[in-house]
């Protein structure tokens, strides 16, 4: 099914599942997630439904 989608859909309609990062960038991302940033005020208010 995936291959059929790849053949059928134009590039503009296709969403690649994998995002590949340079090694250093990937490692920095993993490190940043060890202590996730606090939510911004806007995010807190958004999730409260404000």
């Amino acid at each position: 099914m995936f291959m059929e989608a790849r053949r059928t859909l134009p590039d503009e309609a296709f969403v690649p599942a994998r995002i590949v990062l340079e090694n250093k960038a990937f490692d920095q991302l993993v490190k940043s997630m060890e202590k996730a940033p606090k939510p911004t005020r806007a995010l807190v208010e958004l999730m409260r439904g404000k």
Binding site: A17, I19, A25, L29, M33, P39
Partner: peptide, 25 residues
């Protein structure tokens, strides 16, 4: 913004931006 993206961007190359789920209340 995600840094160092080498593959997997969408057509038109929008900026992939990341938010950790641990940061979502």
């Amino acid at each position: 913004p995600l840094e160092g993206v080498t593959a997997g961007t969408l057509h038109g190359e929008p900026t992939p931006m990341f938010l950790a789920t641990a940061s979502i209340p």
